[in-house]
Simulated scan of single mutants.
Amino acid sequence: MRFLIFVWIALAVAAAASAWFAMQPSWRGTAKFWITVCAVLLAAFAVSFVMLGASADKSLLSMALYFLNWGMAAGGAAICVGVIAGLSAALAFKR
């Protein structure tokens, strides 16, 4: 379990570093767009946990949310958190 936590944190740090280095000062609008996209994905991830916990039916939506949960838990959430952190830091400190 510790190894998986280490991999998740390493993935988040790698995404943050990549977003920091890829950010150009002239791309401020694009950076804000990707921060918004990652925030929406994280919100969908959180909502899907609540929806899957509340229902046990086998609809197409519940199956899609199931795959979203596992994909985001495996690494998508780490990448989203890293991108948000890296781009936010780049927006704040890069001129």
Rank of each mutant, 00 (worst) to 15 (best):
A85K: 11
A46D: 03
L60T: 07
A12R: 07
W8C: 01
P25Y: 05
V81K: 06
M51P: 09
L65P: 03
A12W: 03
A10L: 12
V7E: 03
A56K: 08
F45H: 09
A15W: 14
V7T: 08
A64D: 00
A31L: 13
L91R: 11
A73M: 14
V50S: 09
R95P: 12
G53W: 12
D57S: 11
I5T: 15
F33W: 15
M51I: 14
F49L: 10
F21G: 00
M1R: 09
T30V: 15
V7N: 04
W34F: 15
A10R: 05
A17S: 13
K94W: 07
F21C: 00
A89I: 14
V7G: 00
A12Y: 00
V40G: 00
S59I: 01
A31H: 07
F93M: 13
I9A: 15
M1T: 03
A46I: 05
N69T: 10
W8N: 06
D57Q: 11
L42F: 01
L91A: 11
T30C: 04
L52W: 08
G86S: 10
A56G: 11
D57R: 06
A73N: 14
V81L: 15
S48D: 15
A16C: 09
W34P: 04
L4W: 14
I79W: 14
G82Y: 05
F49G: 13
W70M: 09
N69G: 04
W27V: 06
A90N: 04
A14I: 05
G82K: 13
F6E: 13
M72S: 02
L61G: 03
K94A: 02
G29M: 14
I79V: 14
V37S: 10
L61W: 07
A74K: 10
L52F: 08
T30E: 15
L4C: 13
A19Q: 08
C80D: 09
F45T: 00
F45G: 00
L65A: 02
M63D: 13
V37E: 11
C80S: 13
V37R: 13
D57F: 06
A19W: 08
I9W: 15
A85E: 07
A78D: 01
S48A: 12
R2P: 11
Y66R: 11
M23W: 10
D57Y: 07
L61T: 08
F49P: 02
D57P: 11
L91T: 09
